[in-house]
């Protein structure tokens, strides 16, 4: 058997899927950040005429998927599966966006790592010959996340210095067996690790061990080093999570340097008062769909390792005093 799996956790794609198109939508605050110009669409109002934050998030996801479809030129009927996820209970934003498209649908939950998970799984479908075209999408919304995971939006409280700001946004990609664009060449599926962090206001610290573990395994499985990549970028560890991951990797014998950064540190300006940076499913998705893919296409980047990071707690588990399980999924994208 021609095995595509190498080492412990990694797959190498033989028929390398291509990213035909990408589309990103963000809210007003993200639009004012340093990456503002890289997004396809900036909403001027985070409710955008919908009846609730949740419906606004779902609409954003639906519009992002429609946008990616239009850019790819693939007719809707030729999409074999949509793979989407978000942070809301029972992935509400995804289910309702999928209802609007009414195509075969697989819902995913990897918390904020869902974009990387969707790319890894979707690419398996494409490489294995189970699909020709796949639509991947994720969303998150600051206000719907606040209301579900923390406090009502109008409730007065002080945010912790380590707290991150959930990105209001949605990102979508069309992946295909054939066509031109950046290629997905390998993926490392992460395992759920829990190093005992309990602070839901410090999720970067809760996820950093899982992200580092996935990277350690990725480098061993493919016999590569960090220097083999132009850019290594984790999903949403934020300022302190990134600093922790750097330390953890060095203490694990990985020679990691400035090529490793984090999407969560890129979306907001320091004067936007978000404390430790950005988080949420959309965090890595909109940075990938905008900035990274543009830099891959321009030739500035040749080979990128995206490690989506997910914090797998729920409001219930946190109230019951449980520590926070984390996960990291890695995908290799090459120009």
């Amino acid at each position: 058997m021609n095995s595509r799996k190498v080492g412990n956790q990694t797959v190498i794609y033989v028929n390398q899927p291509v990213i035909l198109s990408s589309y990103s939508i963000v809210g007003p605050m993200e639009g004012k950040g340093p990456l503002g110009k890289t997004f396809d669409l900036v909403w001027t109002d985070s409710l955008n005429g919908e009846k609730s934050w949740e419906l606004a998030e779902s609409k954003m996801l639906q519009n992002a998927m429609q946008g990616a479809l239009n850019k790819s030129g693939i007719p809707e009927a030729e999409i074999d599966y949509i793979l989407t996820g978000d942070l809301l209970n029972q992935i509400m934003a995804s289910n309702f966006a999928a209802r609007a498209l009414a195509l075969p649908f697989i819902g995913l939950y990897g918390a904020c790592s869902t974009m990387a998970l969707g790319i890894a799984v979707g690419s398996m479908f494409l490489d294995g010959g189970f699909a020709q075209n796949i639509l991947v999408g994720v969303s998150s919304h600051h206000d719907s996340a606040e209301r579900q995971f923390r406090l009502p939006t109008e409730h007065g409280s002080q945010r912790a210095m380590s707290a991150q700001w959930t990105v209001t946004g949605a990102g979508s990609l069309v992946l295909a067996r054939e066509g031109s664009g950046p290629r997905i060449t390998a993926a490392t599926i992460g395992r759920v690790l829990d190093y005992g962090g309990k602070d839901v206001n410090n999720m970067g610290a809760a996820m950093a061990p899982a992200v580092a573990d996935t990277m350690v395994n990725h480098f061993q499985d493919l016999n590569r080093k960090p220097k083999d990549y132009d850019l290594i970028i984790s999903g949403d560890l934020g300022t302190y999570g990134l600093a922790l991951a750097h330390k953890v990797l060095r203490q694990s014998g990985v020679d990691i340097g400035r090529e490793y950064t984090d999407c969560g540190t890129m979306i907001y300006n320091p004067d936007q008062d978000v404390h430790a940076g950005a988080s949420g499913c959309a965090c890595s998705a909109v940075v990938l769909a905008g900035d990274i893919i543009q830099r891959l296409k321009s030739g500035e980047l040749k080979r990128v390792l995206l490690v989506g990071s997910g914090s797998l707690h729920s409001p219930t588990s946190a109230l019951q005093g449980q520590s926070i399980p984390g996960i990291g999924h890695a995908v290799v994208i090459e120009a």
Partner: peptide
């Protein structure tokens, strides 16, 4: 954990995390 994994125990990691995480002002 099946190796390879990160070179810190949960206790060592929590100590490191405490050291790096910001204190309230």
């Amino acid at each position: 954990l099946r190796p390879p994994t990160i070179g810190l125990s949960p206790m060592e990691y929590q100590a490191l995390s405490k050291q790096i995480s910001p204190k309230p002002t």
